[in-house]
Design a binder for these strands. Structure first.
Lengths: 143, 143
DNA sequence: ACATCATGATACATGCAATGTTACATGATT
DNA sequence: AATCATGTAACATTGCATGTATCATGATGT
């Protein structure tokens, strides 16, 4: 399976939207992401449903931010794009009949759950506003 | 993508091998895992290369443990089956041209690396010997 | 020797989910 | 009315684990 990059992509887009006057079209965004405008609309539909962006049709239309970047965390975006499976490894699907399998699955899942909890906590602790300020601090030089 | 269950499957097999006298054939193991003997040989080849099991051909042949379960951790097995990608999410493949993208990728990767480090540590801290003893304690009743 | 059993190895098929692509409908602006 | 942009549906592509078929190789038992 290919790696799911929707989170990164949407973070990338949202930061650019914050630094851009007026709406951005799906074509512009697709150019930035080196992909197809349909992929952009499909993915950003989740952000719109969550209330983070709005979209307008017609001349001068496109995508605009609908809330403060400080109100959005990485976790929010992760969930807005569908909250996909985090891990590529895991147990077989069905409930195990075998007691050994049960214990083994539990051991693996326990570790995965711990790692997931840490990841979710980290994602929840970083806001897009903070990322935007980090960017300014890094690339626009000190004042 | 389907979830990679080679780690769980191999742990399951190794614990059964420890509780089984004599070699186990790929057919027996395939029955336990509800899969195909070719899949078993393919996956267990990694364990053999790592020295955790041996395989013998012909009558009375099959798979046998080649070392103490206390010497094998979940991490060892994870690596022996190929040390596959842990996460289903991540950044786009190529190196980013855009500075915003660079920063965003870094933020996501930092969180992923932390979670991965925790998972690897947890996997490395659990031995198959310990799992076997846990099993006995749980399912064979107290003495 | 010879039949049988089991692994080793190769080649190809399948399933699944994100991604890519095409096509057309809908609504807003000029 | 023409143009622009999104919304949606349908289908193709890709990557990877898994499933499957087939034959070669080596070990064991008669």
């Amino acid at each position: 399976m290919r790696r799911d990059s929707r989170l990164s992509r949407m973070l990338h887009v949202l930061l650019h939207m914050a630094r851009h006057d007026g709406p951005m079209t799906s074509d512009m965004i697709a150019g930035m992401l080196r992909t197809n405008p349909v992929v952009v609309r499909r993915t950003m539909a989740g952000l719109r449903n969550a209330g983070y962006v709005r979209s307008e049709k017609g001349h001068g239309g496109g995508w605009v931010l609908a809330c403060d970047l400080d109100k959005i965390t990485l976790l929010d975006v992760h969930r807005a794009v569908g909250g996909p499976q985090i891990f590529a490894i895991g147990n077989e699907s069905g409930a195990p009949h075998c007691l050994v399998e049960k214990l083994v699955n539990q051991a693996v899942e326990d570790a995965l759950h711990e790692a997931e909890a840490l990841l979710i906590a980290r994602f929840g602790a970083v806001s897009l506003g903070q990322l935007a300020r980090d960017f300014d601090a890094c690339y626009e030089g000190p004042r």
